[in-house]
Structure formats: structure tokens, C-alpha cells
Amino acid sequence: MIKIYHNPRCGKSREGLELVEKSGKAFEVVKYLTDVPSFEELQTIIKLLGIAPIELVRQKEDVWVKNFKGKEVSDEAIIKIMIENPILIERPIVINGNKAVMGRPPEKILDIV
């Protein structure tokens, strides 16, 4: 089953959800701002995406800029920071089996649905 990590207030995330809906395949929506992923879940997402944890961070968000920008932060700490501040998690993220993409641009989602 397809899983989309979604923020309803984000236009790109809404576009991504629409693409998943149009695929006609079964999917699950995770509103990650309220249903925050666990440390292990974020580790798995990062591994599936094939990126470093910092690449999943929205580095222009005020929380990041004011508190962490320019500081040396370990990968483990970055994941913990995202759990404490889920607004920092890039969106949308779509997972289909052992494949995952960040939907920026949303059309990238079509590669795995």
C-alpha cells in the first residue's frame, strides 16, 4: 500500500495527494504534524529516499534558522529535532513498497505510483 506523509496546509503536499488519489491505488495518508513519525520510522524513510537526514529538513523554516542553522548537528540529532519539530520535515513524502520519493516537484510521485 502507498503511504503519503501529508501536510494539508501545504500546496505541494495537496498536489502530491491528488496525484496519489488519481493513481487509483490503495493508499494511507499520514498527517505527520499530528501523527509524528517515530525515530525508527524517520530512519527508514531516510534510508528509502537514499539521502542524509539534513536533506529531509526544511532548512528555511524559522525553527531551523533560529535554532540550528550553521551549527554542527549529528544525523541522530537531526532526526530527533524533526520529531520535536515535525514542521521541519519536507513534504510530501510518498512510499510505495521499498521505494520512496519527496514530492518536490509533485510530479516525482508518478515515478513510484
Score class of each variant (00 low, 15 high):
Leu17Asp: 08
Leu17Ala: 11
Leu19Cys: 06
Leu19Gly: 06
Val20Asn: 03
Lys22Tyr: 02
Lys22Trp: 06
Ser23Gln: 11
Gly24Met: 04
Ala26Gln: 13
Ala26Asp: 14
Val30Leu: 07
Val30Gln: 04
Tyr32Ile: 10
Leu33Ala: 07
Thr34Gly: 10
Asp35Glu: 15
Asp35Leu: 14
Glu40Gln: 14
Glu41Met: 05
Leu42Gln: 09
Leu42Met: 14
Gln43Arg: 14
Thr44Gly: 08
Lys47Arg: 15
Leu48Val: 01
Leu49Pro: 00
Ile51Pro: 09
Ala52Cys: 14
Ala52Val: 13
Ala52Asn: 15
Pro53Phe: 10
Gln59Leu: 13
Gln59Ala: 12
Glu61Asn: 00
Asp62Pro: 11
Asp62Phe: 05
Trp64Tyr: 05
Lys66Leu: 10
Lys66His: 07
Gly70Pro: 01
Gly70Ser: 04
Lys71Gln: 09
Lys71Trp: 02
Glu72Cys: 07
Glu72Gln: 06
Glu72Lys: 11
Val73Cys: 03
Asp75Ser: 03
Glu76Thr: 01
Ile79Gly: 02
Ile79Asp: 05
Lys80Ala: 06
Ile81Thr: 03
Ile81Ser: 01
Met82His: 05
Met82Ile: 15
Met82Ala: 01
Ile83Ala: 06
Asn85Val: 09
Ile87His: 04
Ile89Gln: 08
Pro92Ile: 15
Ile93Ser: 00
Ile93Asn: 00
Ile95Trp: 12
Asn96Ile: 02
